[in-house]
Simulated scan of single mutants.
Amino acid sequence: MSKLSFLAGLGVGYVLGAKAGQKRYNQIRTQADRVWSSGPVQSRVDTVKQTVKEQAPVVAAKLGDAAKSAGASAMDRVTGEDLPPSLHRGTDGHLHADTTGYGPGGERLP
């Protein structure tokens, strides 16, 4: 019997709460619409929109640079080469050998 009473109370509470909740929700929504439509809020919104439009190219350029840098860094990590000390990749992208000795150390080879 206690479960049935609990469920009945839960049902009544839900129905009454839903009706009161919807009424309060509509009050809050009406007030929020009134505030949003007011002159001071809309003038501030227009100011923010203009600032965003002016700064969009700057932000886009910075994001583009950051993306290129991150992409290059990721590419280096993914395709990174583990070259011996006598080899290096030049700015032209080609491998270059250290020709100052015979391999890793001139003192090691004749």
Rank of each mutant, 00 (worst) to 15 (best):
E54N: 05
E54T: 06
E54V: 07
E54W: 05
E54L: 11
A56R: 01
A56E: 13
A56L: 12
P57D: 00
P57Y: 00
P57G: 02
P57A: 00
V58Y: 02
V59W: 11
V59D: 05
A60M: 11
A60L: 09
A60K: 08
A60N: 06
A60F: 05
A61C: 02
K62F: 15
K62L: 14
K62Y: 15
K62W: 15
K62S: 14
L63K: 07
L63M: 09
L63D: 08
L63Q: 04
G64L: 09
G64S: 10
D65K: 05
D65W: 03
A66P: 00
K68I: 04
K68Y: 00
S69R: 10
S69V: 03
A70S: 10
A70M: 07
A70V: 12
G71M: 06
G71I: 05
A72F: 01
S73D: 00
S73P: 13
S73Y: 05
S73G: 11
S73W: 08
S73R: 15
A74Q: 08
A74I: 12
M75Y: 03
M75A: 10
M75H: 09
D76C: 06
D76V: 09
D76S: 11
R77N: 13
R77Y: 04
V78S: 09
T79H: 13
T79V: 07
G80C: 04
G80K: 02
G80H: 04
G80N: 03
E81K: 15
E81N: 11
E81W: 03
E81S: 12
D82G: 13
L83V: 08
L83F: 04
L83G: 05
L83M: 12
P84W: 07
P85K: 12
P85F: 15
S86M: 12
S86A: 13
S86G: 08
S86D: 15
S86E: 15
L87H: 10
L87K: 09
H88R: 04
H88V: 13
R89W: 02
R89P: 07
G90D: 10
G90K: 01
G90S: 05
G90R: 00
G90A: 07
T91F: 03
T91G: 06
D92F: 09
D92A: 04
D92Q: 06
H94P: 00
H94T: 08
L95K: 11
L95R: 09
L95T: 09
L95M: 14
L95A: 14
H96L: 04
H96T: 03
H96N: 02
A97V: 14
A97D: 07
A97M: 12
A97T: 11
A97P: 06
D98S: 09
T99A: 13
T99Q: 14
T100Y: 01
T100F: 02
T100A: 10
T100G: 10
G101M: 07
G101S: 09
G101D: 03
Y102I: 06
Y102C: 10
G103I: 05
G103P: 00
G103Y: 02
G103A: 13
P104S: 10
P104E: 10
P104C: 11
P104H: 09
P104A: 10
P104R: 13
P104Y: 08
